[in-house]
Design a protein around this nucleic acid. Structure first.
Length: 220
DNA sequence: ACATTAAGTGATT
DNA sequence: AATCACTTAATGT
């Protein structure tokens, strides 16, 4: 691990982990960089590392039998993927797909250490338990919007999330991308987007969506 | 100028 | 809300 990465690691985690743990992380883990859109982990791929996000963000999706995707949630800085912590006990195959939402730097922790460190480092145990809790809440939230929200609200939530994650009001995406993430058809998304445009929430061009009325969008 | 890809729309289920 | 079939608009070569 080079010096700059070590610094980044400290910046992110020195208040979260014990000094011993930081040292151990540095000695056994390595850093991997992913570019926007790159698949970090795919469905059925075997899990050997638990990723810890140092910078950037990744989106987590599932897939149905016919290969349609569904966006579950995003992971951001200092977070980890709770699903990947499912250790050797169960078959260690990934049930999700993880894609880099932007250029992303990950700390790859050998999966067998996740377990060992739980016993060895109290702060690690707390961290893992917290991320489970957080993830469970996010999942419930995802199920909630899926089950009880109509498509228009789901699109609104999607735009809002994406905007916050990327910290920008201009999204460079296609209607088709949104449709894939939400597991619906492009036509449906286009109709909703047109409506939002007429209502003054957004301005859109080909491959580009600008959120105009942020406050109104966020209040929904 | 032509081909390709993204977005808009009416009609039907 | 999904699908089809078609149009219109933007972009690449």
């Amino acid at each position: 691990m080079n010096l700059k990465d070590k610094e980044l690691l400290r910046e992110n985690f020195e208040f979260l982990f014990e000094e011993d743990l930081l040292q151990e992380i540095i000695s056994v883990s390595n850093i991997k960089n992913f570019t926007e859109g790159q698949i970090i982990m795919d469905i059925n791929q075997s899990i050997e590392f638990a990723p810890l996000i140092i910078s950037g963000s990744i989106k987590i999706l599932t897939e149905d039998e016919s290969g349609n995707e569904l966006l579950l949630y995003y992971l951001e800085q200092t977070e980890t993927c709770a699903i990947s912590l499912n250790l050797e006990s169960s078959s260690n195959k990934s049930s999700i797909r993880a894609i880099a939402e932007m250029d992303t730097k990950l700390l790859m922790i050998p999966i067998e250490l996740v377990d060992k460190w739980m016993v060895k480092y109290p702060k690690w145990r707390k961290f893992i338990i917290n991320s489970y809790q957080f993830r469970l809440r996010e999942m419930l939230n995802a199920i909630d919007t899926l089950a009880f929200n109509n498509m228009e609200n789901r699109v609104l939530l999607y735009l809002k999330d994406k905007m916050l994650i990327n910290s920008t009001d201009i999204l460079r995406i296609k209607h088709n991308d949104i449709a894939n993430d939400l597991h619906t058809s492009r036509v449906v998304v286009s109709r909703i987007m047109k409506k939002l445009e007429l209502e003054g929430f957004i301005v859109q061009n080909r491959n580009k969506i600008q959120i105009v009325d942020i406050n109104n969008l966020l209040s929904i």
